[in-house]
Design a protein around this nucleic acid. Structure first.
Lengths: 316, 316
DNA sequence: TTGTATGCGTTATCAT
DNA sequence: ATGATAACGCATACAA
């Protein structure tokens, strides 16, 4: 293993100048700097992050916390996780996976990325001693990254109208959470701009719940209706039951999902959906968290990422 | 932060006795041991794993490497990952996610868990300088954990026979890999024991490939046939196309999948499948890898985990 | 059996 | 601007 000392010897300087070249390059003269950099390359030196961690009283580890108790291994979160991991790798950070909220502070992690937070969870956050960032909209001043949910449903609704569906119905998730309110708002605003009356149903975020809804209400739905959904799961359930009822998708009914992760592709027909850049958001969150740690907890703000409309077979 | 010294002071001993109580408890007298343990609990002492890592020349980080270039965020791998993470947590280890094989040795990880290895990958392994374990059957002497693939397809085949399907067809994955050979063997052996003739098709591991197969061959398949599949993806594709052709599942045709992760539940009808205990295997692999690291590379052997048959709507 | 001294690789502090 | 020293928390080697 090549250490600071090795580089120092090679460059005929002290360890400290080498350390400074790495951490405070402006404090060392260009000549020496050049010598040191040359030596580092020659020896293929890489700082030992464990030793760095020790002096800095850090662990170089952060936690990826999943609070939502649904199946945590679903592709949606996993894209986030891989994006997050990519962001961490840039700074030699590693991660630990936590699904049990009581174990959050067990390890000596430097910070947390928290996903799946619900209204009831916020008290928990106030007690956290280490920096954290959230994945998911909130309006309590916690740093977060999320999709621009309002823009997403606006895009979906406008697209449905442009495909000449006469009635646009929103099927949301029956959760009193900010992301759901935003998605409903995007739909409502778009319809109202055109003097149309919003019509909203809410179901739990499972395909069979959506399926039940359609089964029960099928008679009430007229042809030329497009369902704008708050998730791909819901969209998949709607399509399934529409077809069970003998309806034609996308000709009689259109269906637009929200998420664009995995389910949209295994569905048949493939889903028109609002695709979230989950991977990218994970990467971003890693950057925010690491910066927050480096700056001992300074606020990082709120970031909304524009989703994209993916046109496929579930709309005409 | 509570350190060794703090505990030492509290217990009126030197740092070393405290250290020994942790690492070599047999070397210290019961009386002192009791004192030290009491002090540790009183102060709620937890060893600083970073400092431990530094003296031991380790990082307390391992890599989770995914070589297969399919969508790496699919639930199958994610269950493994969460099981692995659980196993690591027991020893305060963290992980890094790697999907780019050229980056495996970039970090200073202590070892690797490698998944999705194919025949062409084995040369790579010989060059690895750190301990590693594989997820997936191999016969080149590398330590691994896998499902007992042969037992799995044996169970599936026997179950199909017990449900009085007259013809049992195996639809495998067209890969020349050990796990596939084992799955085929389990099927073949079971049929031969009963003097029945095996009939095998192979497709790529995507639902639409399986769908194409059925579309092309549908005329050749008699009623009362059960398809024993090498994956749930394949099973889902088969069901979809059978129903497109107007056949009745499970009455006319039975379908049995293999994996039991996610897809089997979103399928309709839900899949009868051979469920692998992926999460458990991940946990196990973590234990093996950590032990291998602790024992500086000692072989850990090969472990086969019995899968379970899940009976559901795709068989009668 | 227990304690002392030393070092792991790095950085902050203080002196030059 | 550069260097010597000490310190982070722990464990190995050696001494008592």
């Amino acid at each position: 293993m090549v250490t600071l000392s090795d580089v120092a010897k090679e460059a005929n300087v002290s360890k400290m100048t080498v350390s400074r070249v790495i951490n405070h390059p402006e404090q060392v003269t260009p000549e020496l700097k050049k010598l040191v950099i040359q030596a580092m390359e020659e020896l293929d030196y890489h700082p030992n992050s464990v030793a760095q961690a020790l002096v800095n009283n850090r662990s170089n580890v952060v936690e990826f916390v999943t609070l939502e108790d649904i199946d945590t291994t679903e592709p949606y979160y996993m894209n986030l996780l891989f994006g997050f991991a990519k962001g961490l790798a840039k700074k030699q950070y590693a991660l630990q996976l936590v699904t049990d909220r009581t174990k959050i502070e067990q390890s000596n992690a430097d910070g947390y990325l928290i996903t799946g937070a619900r209204n009831g969870d916020y008290e928990l956050f106030d007690q956290l001693k280490k920096p954290f960032v959230l994945f998911g909209e909130n309006h309590r001043g916690f740093d977060f990254v999320d999709t621009d949910n309002k823009a997403g449903t606006r895009m979906a609704t406008e697209y449905a109208l442009s495909r000449l569906y006469k009635h646009i119905i929103f099927v949301g998730i029956d959760l009193k959470e900010p992301f759901e309110y935003s998605r409903e708002a995007g739909y409502i605003n778009t319809l109202q701009k055109r003097q149309l009356i919003p019509q909203i149903y809410r179901v739990s975020n499972h395909s069979h719940s959506a399926q039940s809804l359609i089964k029960k209400m099928y008679q009430d739905f007229k042809k030329d209706t497009c369902f704008v959904c708050a998730s791909d799961r819901i969209a998949v359930g709607i399509i399934r039951e529409l077809e069970n009822q003998g309806a034609k998708v996308p000709d009689d009914f259109g269906v637009i999902g929200f998420d664009g992760v995995f389910l949209d592709q295994v569905s048949s027909p493939k889903l028109t959906t609002i695709r979230q850049s989950i991977f990218k958001m994970g990467d971003l969150l890693a950057g925010m968290l690491l910066q927050k740690i480096a700056q001992s907890g300074s606020p990082q703000g709120e970031v909304l990422i524009e989703p994209t409309l993916v046109r496929r077979g579930s709309t005409r």
